[in-house]
Amino acid sequence: MNMARALRTIVLFAVLIALHYSVRPLFAARASVDFLVIALLLAAVRVRPGAAALVGFLLGLLMDSLRPGTFGAASLAMTVIGYSASWLKPVFFADNLPLNAFFFFVGKWGFDAIYLIVGQRLQGRELVIQLLLWSPLAAAITAAVGVFLLVFARPLTESRSS
């Protein structure tokens, strides 16, 4: 990854974080797009698993700081998702959009599952509904937006020489 490509990736990463805190509150829906997971997955496929885990941990720490009731849950979930995404990246092929969509879907759903279970904010029936209804919906929306960004942001994130 050359310098320009790394810089563009960082800019896209920052933009996605900003979008998470500026666009997502506008809708305030139970099933909404998670730009932080998209940012983590886009970064994770480009770095080593340890670095991806570190990025995930830092993003999770940021999320936890704004939600002190579940402090540590987002860090753990993002660390696991970052490491897993980076470790699983050879599985996914470059230009297969459905597979990439599934990648985003699983990433978001996995994050929600770890976060909800570890954070213990929801229990019982509510937890089941959230995990089986709202989280898949949010994961689907996140996957759609992720694929959209992947397609339209590819000129930014790939080197011209390749």
């Binding site: 480009r46 080593r48 340890g50 470059a94 790939e158």
Partner: peptide, 12 residues
């Protein structure tokens, strides 16, 4: 998603 040249992981 294009495959990265980074190795799949190490002990570190």
């Amino acid at each position: 998603m294009r495959r990265s040249s980074v190795s799949q992981g190490s002990r570190a």
